[in-house]
């Protein structure tokens, strides 16, 4: 019979510990909390579709009053999107996103405006959304490292709370906290921070409805936390997803139609 030396005993104990730890991990995966990557993956798949059209209104409130604009938006996979203002004094203006480029069309201008640099931080239709908020079509997982912080209820709905840290210093909001509905995988709430940890914007989403096998928040409120008494409420009136949209909608040369 081989003699069990102290070294051999320790090795066997460590091996047994490793096996037990692996079993525990498997057990946790199959029956416990999902990983942050899994949550984000489900969130992204809920938010993306081949092509879609939304008719919505944007109500901008600040200390000077409230202004309303209606718009229609067409979008497709890959990040292309077209927004056309359909009511109010700015009726007929269009915003086209092609990949990471933003173009503006004004009915009374001879040329299409290509937004670049700091102009991307300008407000979209006077709202608390900026053009820059439209530019990035990469997934959250591409842009951020995610950490699951646990669970928290938002408006009575149980949500996963995640902390996102930007992978690139070019990201406008270096840190984000998001609350993802556990049942519907819709973002219910988000707080967007600067690199220094200062809260810049907050977003809340309500009126979640099923559409085409996914869930969509029909009301979203964005608040600029650096200003007093300002908020923007986007209310979706009609949504169609996975529809055919002609190529010309995403063509810069066709903006003036």
């Amino acid at each position: 019979m081989k003699r069990i030396t102290p070294a051999r005993a320790i090795f066997r104990l460590l091996s047994l510990a490793a096996v037990l730890a692996g079993a525990a991990a498997v057990s946790a995966q199959s029956g416990g909390e999902p990983s942050s990557a899994a949550i984000l993956g489900k969130l992204e798949s809920n938010q993306s579709w081949n092509a879609g059209k939304i008719e919505a209104s944007l109500a901008v409130s600040n200390r000077f009053g409230v202004t309303d604009n209606d718009f229609t938006s067409w979008s497709r996979k890959g990040g292309d999107a077209l927004i056309e203002i359909t009511s109010g004094p700015d009726r007929g203006q269009k915003v086209l996103r092609q990949a990471s480029n933003i173009y503006l069309f004004y009915p009374e201008a001879d040329e299409v405006i290509w937004l670049k640099g700091t102009a991307l931080r300008d407000s979209l239709m006077g709202s608390d959304f900026s053009y820059e908020d439209l530019t990035d079509d990469r997934t959250l997982m591409d842009r951020f490292d995610a950490e699951l912080l646990g669970s928290e209820a938002v408006d009575g709905e149980d949500c996963w709370k995640l902390k996102l840290k930007a992978k690139s210093k070019k990201e406008t909001y270096q840190i984000q906290e998001i609350w993802v509905d556990k049942t519907r995988y819709v973002q219910r709430k988000a707080i967007l921070y600067s690199a220094a940890g200062k809260a810049l914007r907050s977003m809340t989403a309500t009126d979640v409805r099923p559409i085409g096998g996914r869930y969509l928040a029909y009301s979203t409120t964005m608040t600029d936390l650096l200003k007093k008494n300002t908020s923007t409420v986007m209310t979706i009136k009609k949504a169609e997803i996975d529809i055919d949209i002609p190529e010309r909608y995403f063509n810069r040369e066709e903006l003036s139609w």
């Binding site: 901008v60 202004t67 109010g88 700015d90 203006q93 201008a109 040329e111 239709m125 006077g126």
Partner: peptide, 18 residues
């Protein structure tokens, strides 16, 4: 020459005109 000007407006929107 023709030039395009961009501005904010009194209706809290934006406008561009050549």
């Amino acid at each position: 020459d023709r030039v395009t000007l961009l501005t904010k407006t009194a209706s809290s929107g934006t406008n561009g005109r050549t």
